[in-house]
Amino acid sequence: MVRLLLLPVLLWSAAALAASDDSGRVVFDYQMNCQGCHTPDGAGAGSVPAMQGHVGVFLQSQAGREYLVRVPGSATSALSDERLAAVLNWIVYEFAGDSLQSPFTPYTAAEVAPLRKHPLNEVDDYRQHVLRAIAGADARE
């Protein structure tokens, strides 16, 4: 009986260990490509916007979802499509908190690849446009 009980626990530990290996890679990618400006906890500083408790807002619209990929820091990073998608998902899971209002469909390499070919030029304008549209939609609800 004890053995039967133990089996799922062991399987669970193995899965958790495998996941932590992946999370080590994704944390490293975040550190090397994002953390310098976005800070370790995504709080930002000075003119670097806070992702902590905020990044989920962008996922309320398709344009916002695309913004997170097309923003130059993402689109032009040295990461592969797979690793960029993994970092973006990690950022959402780690930092979105209550700003994520609906279930999150993770980014995939296939989704990220075509979007990052069109990095944003007027980032601030596009960002404001996206956030205003989302705020407007919220107000109408």
Binding site: M1, L5, V9, S13
Partner: peptide, 22 residues
């Protein structure tokens, strides 16, 4: 004894899953 041993095995196995241990 069975209960104690069971709790120890399951509890011991799950310690590495706690955020503190990680």
């Amino acid at each position: 004894l069975l209960k104690g041993l069971g709790a120890m095995l399951v509890g011991g196995a799950s310690i590495p899953l706690l955020p503190v241990a990680r």
